[in-house]
Design a protein around this nucleic acid. Sequence first.
DNA 1: GACGACATACCGACCAGTTGGTATGTTTCT
DNA 2: AGAAACATACCAACTGGTCGGTATGTCGTC
Lengths: 206, 206
Amino acid sequence: MNIELPKQNARTKLLEAAFSVIREQGFSATSVDDLCAAAGVTKGAFFHHFATKEALGVAAADYWSLVTGGLFETAPYHRHADAAQRVIGYVAFRKAILQGEIAQFTCLAGTMVQETYVSSVAIRDACANSITGHAAKLEADIEEAMRNRNLTGFTARSLAMHTQVVLQGAFILAKALGSAAPALDSLDHLTRYLELLFNQESEEKA
Amino acid sequence: MNIELPKQNARTKLLEAAFSVIREQGFSATSVDDLCAAAGVTKGAFFHHFATKEALGVAAADYWSLVTGGLFETAPYHRHADAAQRVIGYVAFRKAILQGEIAQFTCLAGTMVQETYVSSVAIRDACANSITGHAAKLEADIEEAMRNRNLTGFTARSLAMHTQVVLQGAFILAKALGSAAPALDSLDHLTRYLELLFNQESEEKA
DNA sequence: GACGACATACCGACCAGTTGGTATGTTTCT
DNA sequence: AGAAACATACCAACTGGTCGGTATGTCGTC
């Protein structure tokens, strides 16, 4: 029998439990005991691996960047030859993964930063890095698409950030209305915006 | 001397304190004592007016709808004769009020619903009503602008909601990056989208 | 004198973090 | 090679303080 469970140590179990629990309850409302119970470890193990609850928050945001980074690197939208198609394909991919429980498709960084942007600089910065780092991967494709079409009037970076703004806002509306539907609608509007930008050949100059 | 402070009772003081404190710390991280201290009232006064902390959350969201409703009703963008100009003017107005401390220009409903959408249906619904109620006021103008231009392919409601999505997302980015700048950039993209939609005469049909 | 609008004092539950310990390696010294 | 010294990973019980909420009292007004 070669079937073996992956040897997860308490640290990894806690970080992955944090993904679920914090996205459901928020960071403040999640107690260390909650996390230990969800991960199936004791409080002693928690404080062996993390000096404080805040330190776990930072580690969770960093681990989030790592995990989501891997997910998007292997996504199929990179195959498009045209850069604009890759950008639009990215949004389509984001739409496709909006399934199941709301907490499971929302963003840990966006959720945490709302609660901690004043109280914890460390968590805020880790969340900011997660979001801007993710946007940076889109930026190259956007820049190429803009160059191909001679688009000016805004920066590739600002448009990359705008996609993240729409996603984060879409998650809030999904939470408020208890459904992914408004998020999907909003991503359709984002797609329409990208198509309008990239299909017109630099009419802005007039 | 007719200069008199408005006779604010403990209830109103608590609700207005909640606007500031909850937008800074979040709902969970804000204790009843925090709110009492900020409002300058005692705990007895708090529980005289609100049965639970959750009840204050609901009341705060409702009061938020009331206060912001008044603010936007008297805003100057309603004067435009063209409906599309009113919609674009709305976004410009939202840009204009993104000043000062971040907590002071963000949305209470969006902040609270993130933390409570699982734990408190009452707060979630109050926040959802605040956001959708605000969007509904835009919907009539959007519908008129769409009718004037024979625009199809999406609903006025979904576009109204999209403006709220962008705003909510913009607040998250502002919090993450500690600056209103990315929010302003994103509202520029939203404006550009609206201009592209409303200035083209129904080219979508082809 | 009754009632609404507070104030003060307090309670049990829960919370982040600490303590002192064990079991299992790993390295170092002889 | 084998023992002593040390490091890592974890555990269960506990602590001081904070939390939401309650019980009871006071004061001004109608």
